[in-house]
């Protein structure tokens, strides 16, 4: 049985005259311990899949099952013990006036964990920051360090699943490598399951065994990492994405001159 099962998920935003159909029947399943990637351009609905899963977007139709059990709306605390999310922008996702200690202690208090101090320190060491960062504020940290704090916050409840929404796209290339390595190591150490959203095919190819290409709220296709590497795709859209991500090409410029 798959750990995450999403069946015919539909998400509709708005009402009255302005209805946006963000997801039109998306199905996927992720096994325990797997790392699954969602790729697509902006507006393809890839982030909406994550947001709908953790209750930040309305589920209009379809089902989401974790461990075979349908999720409740609103999600109950035990859901968040198992599923946590890391957001794209580390500058926006941490409270500017809370210390790192408070950021990390809050989920522990909400879920009634014991030994909070030890857990906060453990989480900081886990993400490679060290306990010296405990009483600092987000503005004293660099972008990469903040994203490490966001990962520590997700990790501190010992979840099984981490939903990663463009976790490195706000970071420099050298910092991105460090954070990707950290995510890789944490998955091995904690036996985590990842669902990773990215617009960068290379990041997804590096991080995920399987991936799904999305466009306009629909699934284009599902691929294994090997198939992606071998360009073994049947869909033009995926092929275009692959070509575009290999850099600029001068050849098929849309111009015809006598």
């Amino acid at each position: 049985m798959a750990l995450i099962e999403i069946e015919n998920l539909e998400v509709v935003f708005g009402g009255g005259g302005r209805i946006v159909h963000a997801l039109r029947g998306v199905s996927l399943s992720v096994e325990e311990g797997e790392s699954f990637g969602l790729v697509g351009e902006s507006g393809s609905g890839k982030s909406t899949v994550l947001r709908a899963t953790c209750g930040l977007a309305p589920v209009t139709a379809g089902r989401i099952l974790i461990d075979g059990i349908p999720v409740t709306t609103p999600r109950d605390p035990s859901f968040y013990r198992r599923v946590q999310m890391v957001f794209q922008d580390p500058y926006a996702s941490l409270h500017p006036r809370h210390t790192i200690d408070r950021v990390l202690s809050e989920p522990l208090a909400i879920h009634g964990f014991d030994r909070r101090e030890a857990r906060v320190e453990r989480a900081l060491i886990d993400v490679g920051l060290g306990t010296g960062f405990r009483f600092r504020y987000p503005h004293q940290l660099s972008g990469g360090q903040r994203q490490r704090v966001a990962i520590a916050r997700a990790l501190i409840l010992e979840p099984k699943v981490i939903l990663l929404d463009e976790p490195t796209s706000a970071l420099d290339a050298s910092i991105q490598a460090e954070v990707l390595n950290l995510l890789d190591r944490l998955r091995a150490e904690h036996g985590l399951t990842y669902v990773l959203v990215s617009h960068d095919l290379a990041v997804v190819a590096h991080m995920c065994e399987r991936l799904m290409v999305m466009q306009g709220g629909q699934v284009v296709e599902q691929l294994s990492r090997e198939a992606l590497q071998a360009h073994a795709t049947t869909k033009d859209y995926t092929r275009n994405l692959l070509t575009a991500s290999e850099g600029f090409t001068r050849a098929p410029a849309p111009q015809s001159r006598p």
Binding site: A173, S174, Q176, A177, L180, N181, D184, D200, L201, A202, V203, A205, H206, M207, L228, Q229, L242, S245, E246
Partner: peptide
């Protein structure tokens, strides 16, 4: 340090 589509360095 850039991840590549082909090649699996980790």
């Amino acid at each position: 340090c850039l991840p590549k589509i082909v090649g699996d360095q980790r």
